[in-house]
């Protein structure tokens, strides 16, 4: 995995996710940070990524809208999207997976949980 886009309006959350990614062996990847969905979309249009990690609750463009944009774009459609949110529950998880997210994790995320979620695409 070479390029990972992390979309979260919280610098603290982005730091947490970056640390977890480094701990599970993805420290060599280029981590690109976005403060909202719109910014993430711009970054993805500039240069394709291997993984998008996104929060749901963000200003300007939320994670749900970002996910819909990505999955409706012919160019970005195959990009794996992992949602890390404080507002996740089984119903929300089903909705997000139906929209194309391959994983949904609740905050606070830990390296072990993140590794488990990323296994299918890391291999």
């Amino acid at each position: 995995m070479k390029r990972i886009v992390i979309a979260d309006d919280s610098a603290t959350a982005r730091l947490f996710i970056s640390r977890c990614l480094a701990i599970i062996g993805l420290g060599e990847a280029t981590l690109v940070e976005a403060e909202n969905g719109r910014e993430a979309l711009s970054l993805l249009k500039e240069e394709m990524a291997d993984l998008l990690v996104t929060d749901l609750n963000m200003p300007v463009m939320d994670g749900l809208t970002l996910l819909k944009w990505v999955k409706s774009s012919p160019r970005l459609h195959d990009l794996p999207v992992l949602v890390i949110t404080s507002a996740g529950n089984p119903a929300k998880e089903r909705e997000l997976k139906d929209l194309g997210a391959f994983g949904v994790l609740n905050k606070p995320v830990s390296p072990a949980v993140l590794l488990d979620a990323l296994k299918p695409i890391m291999s």
């Binding site: 919280s10 603290t12 959350a13 609750n57 949110t85 404080s86 996740g88 609740n106 905050k107 606070p108």
Partner: peptide
């Protein structure tokens, strides 16, 4: 803000 956000979700 991240603490309250995470707390509220949990």
């Amino acid at each position: 803000c991240e603490l309250i956000n995470t707390f509220a979700g949990l």
